[in-house]
Computed example of a mutant assay.
Amino acid sequence: MTKTTGDTALSEPLLRSLDSGVLTLTLHRPAARNALSLEMLDALAAALDEAAEDDSVRVVLLTGAGRGFCAGGDVETLARGESIFGPMSDRPARVARQIEVQRATAVRLWEYPKPTVAALNGHAVGAGMALALACDLRYAVESAELRPGFSAVGLAGDFGATWLLSTLIGRARAVEALLYAEPITARRAVELGVVNAVFGADEFSARVADRVRALAKRSAPAVAAIKRNVVVAGHSDLATAADAEVYRHVELLETPEHRAALEQIRSRGA
């Protein structure tokens, strides 16, 4: 996979770039603050499917072009009373298409077999916020905000925003954020435990690159197993989660990555 360049890039809703095991997916509608389009969402779904089967991809990094991460729903489309998911006259078709797209993007990111990282280079609004929350890790530039702005435009949320916020910051804070639609600053998001770290604008790109490259060097089987363990832990009791860990632990003991790591430890101790 290579990054789209030249004139073609201007019309591409999603840019791809693979470097040192890190696949960067850039939401690319900068003039619209990377507001979601059906073409962008379909491209994201296709990229995630392809990367899941590509052994050269170790980490998926999701970010936005320009100064924003993602503005969520396209205000111009909404203002016209239209939907990107189909004709307003055909509600069942719109519901089916949006469910399909949400599962292929936000839900897919949450359950993805490889680590996913959101680089919040600017504001993440509505469904754009949900895509960021669906990733495993989030790093933000200090000026970025999470904006659960659904209620401000008479909506209640989509792309799993309600579930994701409740899971990550707790029910009471999630309800408050959704009802009042007040922005959550990057610093506050760190306090809430929903953003992992905040960096200044001058160091943001370099610091995020360092973090994801370090992650890409970790054992791929171990990373995949950790992700599965966390998913199981999220919907089971302690005994069930601990039992599941045992099976994956035993499998990992037989991997070349584990044996190589042990040899490195032994060599350093010699």
Score class of each variant (00 low, 15 high):
T4Q: 14
L10I: 10
P13I: 09
P13F: 10
L14W: 11
S17G: 12
D19S: 12
S20T: 08
T26Y: 03
T26V: 14
H28Y: 08
R29Q: 13
N34Q: 05
N34G: 03
A35E: 08
L36A: 06
S37Y: 04
M40T: 07
M40D: 03
L41E: 11
D42W: 00
A45S: 09
A46E: 15
A46G: 08
A46W: 07
D49C: 03
E50W: 06
D54M: 09
V57I: 11
L62N: 03
A65P: 01
G68K: 03
F69W: 02
G73Q: 08
R80G: 14
G81E: 05
I84M: 15
F85H: 12
F85S: 01
G86Y: 00
M88A: 09
M88L: 09
S89H: 06
D90W: 02
Q98G: 01
V101Y: 01
A106C: 10
P115A: 10
A118N: 06
A119K: 03
A124H: 05
G126W: 00
A132Y: 07
A132F: 07
L133W: 10
Y139N: 04
A140R: 01
E145D: 10
E145F: 13
E145W: 11
R147N: 12
G149T: 09
S151D: 09
A156D: 05
D158V: 00
W163D: 14
L165A: 06
S166T: 15
A174T: 08
A177I: 09
A177Y: 08
L178R: 11
L179A: 15
Y180E: 13
T185E: 03
T185M: 03
A186R: 02
A189Q: 02
A189G: 14
E191F: 08
V198A: 06
A201L: 11
E203K: 09
V208S: 03
R211V: 06
R213P: 00
A216W: 07
S219E: 05
S219D: 06
A224S: 12
A224I: 02
R228S: 13
V230E: 14
V231Q: 15
V232M: 09
V232W: 05
G234H: 15
G234S: 15
A239S: 10
Y247F: 11
V250E: 15
L253K: 11
L253A: 13
L253S: 10
P256D: 15
E257V: 04
A260S: 14
A260Y: 05
L262W: 09
I265H: 03
